[in-house]
Design a protein around this nucleic acid. Structure first.
Lengths: 196, 196, 196, 196
DNA sequence: CATGAATGAGGTTTCATTCAT
DNA sequence: TATGAATGAAACCTCATTCAT
């Protein structure tokens, strides 16, 4: 096994176990076992369990953003870009359910909460593609006259719920359904007196 | 202290600690301490920590439903009832942030997931006030032609996100804002070619 | 076993193991074993291994002081009191070799060093019977004109060395020998131009 | 780096780390790091950590003896030689505090104790310059009529204490003070009825 | 019934040593 | 010969649960 392979194995093992069983269902020994390495080996790559978790989150985040950026064009109309991004997010997490589960676990943990605090209040960061989009819509009066966080909730909330449901097997999402769901989200945020 | 008082103290202590610090930030000894009872005493009322947690969730659920039922009239228009229920849910959890936090913790734990699985797929239960409402809207073509779980996601997703943000201090929700948010949710689920 | 007995058993077990094998030859599991209690039990009485060690030291210190105070009279001449105290210290540690070994271990550890720093520089404390004695001798010109720490070294250094040797079996100390040794220490600190 | 350089680097690194942080504050990896060699390399020069430590001690011992021998003349009076040796020891360790700290660590560890047992009881060895001196004094009735170990304690005990205090910063030793201290030691061991 | 001291399995982390490169 | 990544035993500590009082 190559050097970097080992790191990757550890990340993957931890990702899976945490996604499936939560932080406390993923003891380091179990992670090591599944990764096929010794328990101590993990600590050559990650200072502590906390750091391992944070690192995984950070990597996932990067992957998501990269995936969203692919094929994203700043040229389309607001609506088009909204639909595109929302759709891509759903597609990405449908294809990577484990990532979704991990992120949810993370966001519900002390780490995640403080992160969210920094992130949402703080200055712009990578993800903020979406944020910029919404802000542009607010400023341009295409979107309802609501604070940004509300738009976030209106746009993202349904997506999160949808993904949860899909991953739990409550709905079978296909392209048509995704399309409709995303358009419904658009209906939620857009000014109703503006054209569709 | 009366018997039932003791039980209640235990439930309250566990509720607070878990809401604030998560399941693993709430050792039984700490729960006992805060409840003002002996550690062993908890086990006279609840078979195990898991059972205690499940019981708390069950009680919260009941309270929420009761609260929603109060003042709910089946006579209003679909829109009115939708707005009413949504508003009430937001108000309830704003007034009982601890309940919201606990439920989130619970829903993100193994218990919660399996519960959700039973609940949402399974036979109708209490919460289903909302479900019935949505189903009625679907059947009557007032709502978009989407599967029920999608409507759930469209209606509930934003509410959950909003409450999270509010509790974390990202938004200051007042009545006007709640009103707007709920109406935006309605815009999301209603047929856009039907009247407002 | 009574409640307080358990605490005492733990202290005794730790004391013996640390005295004999040093801090790292006394893992908590071994302490628990020898004390006849569960590993977790130790933590009901002591917050951590560090605290356990500090507590043991503190108890030993108290015992030593108590032992020295017994029969100590402030009325004797400086020489008499010096001889008395020195003799008692030697006697005490000869009878409690384990205490001596523990204290040596402790004093050579990070804890002990910082303690010594506080103690010797800091304001008077209990042990300072001896310190006061020396200071009195310095002020009254019965002792050599040297800084207090030097007198400490001259008076205590030999005692420590002697006890080490005795405990390791290098010398067989009897009363006559102790007497001579202590008088030799007195010769070391006293002004040679003053009467014996 | 030459082979012997490597060995020396390792010894120096270990010496410093152990002197400063004790045996357990000096993991092999850290030693290797500071020495600028691979962790495995240490094991090409030293069978184990224990062996490394023993070797370092042995080297230090040799250096001390060499240093003491320099300028030592067998011709002076007993007193002169006693003063000379004592002074040199103090000077040496003041100039090489790290050596002193290491030796203290070593002597307080299981290795050191068994060593001391062999050494002091056993057949004569290098350090015994001092031992011979004292024996000569005993035999010639210039020193008190005490067993050799007691004289050792009387002569060495204060020196050790003094050095400890100096290194910890409790006293500022200058030449005058050293002189006085050493003379006080002499007062401790010499027959008081003999001329000063 | 109520207690809370006691338990010990199981968690995270360290580190002396080995061995493939 | 030199390396340093890998190892896993063993350290400290937590906490759900039991049971004698």
């Amino acid at each position: 096994m190559k050097n970097s392979d080992k790191r990757e194995e550890i990340v993957l093992a931890a990702l899976e176990l945490i996604a499936e069983h939560g932080f406390h269902g993923a003891p380091m020994a179990m992670v090591a076992d599944r990764a096929g390495v010794g328990a101590g080996t993990i600590y050559r790559y990650f200072e502590s369990k906390d750091v391992l978790i944070a690192e995984i989150f950070s990597e996932l985040e990067k992957k998501v953003v990269e995936s969203l950026m692919q094929g994203y064009s700043r040229d389309g109309s607001l609506r088009e870009r909204f639909i595109y991004l929302s759709t891509m997010i759903i597609r990405y997490f449908m294809a990577n359910a484990i990532h979704f589960k991990f992120i949810e676990q993370y966001m519900n943990s002390p780490y995640g909460v403080s992160l969210r605090r920094e992130r949402l209040l703080g200055k712009a960061r990578d993800i903020d593609l979406f944020r910029h989009l919404l802000q542009e819509g607010i400023d341009g009066h295409a979107l309802k006259d609501l604070p940004l966080p509300l738009h976030f909730a209106l746009a993202f909330g349904p997506i999160l719920s949808l993904l949860r449901d899909h991953i739990l097997g409550f709905v079978e999402l296909d392209d048509a359904l995704i399309q409709k769901a995303v358009e419904a989200c658009w209906d939620g945020v857009r000014r109703q007196d503006a054209p569709g």
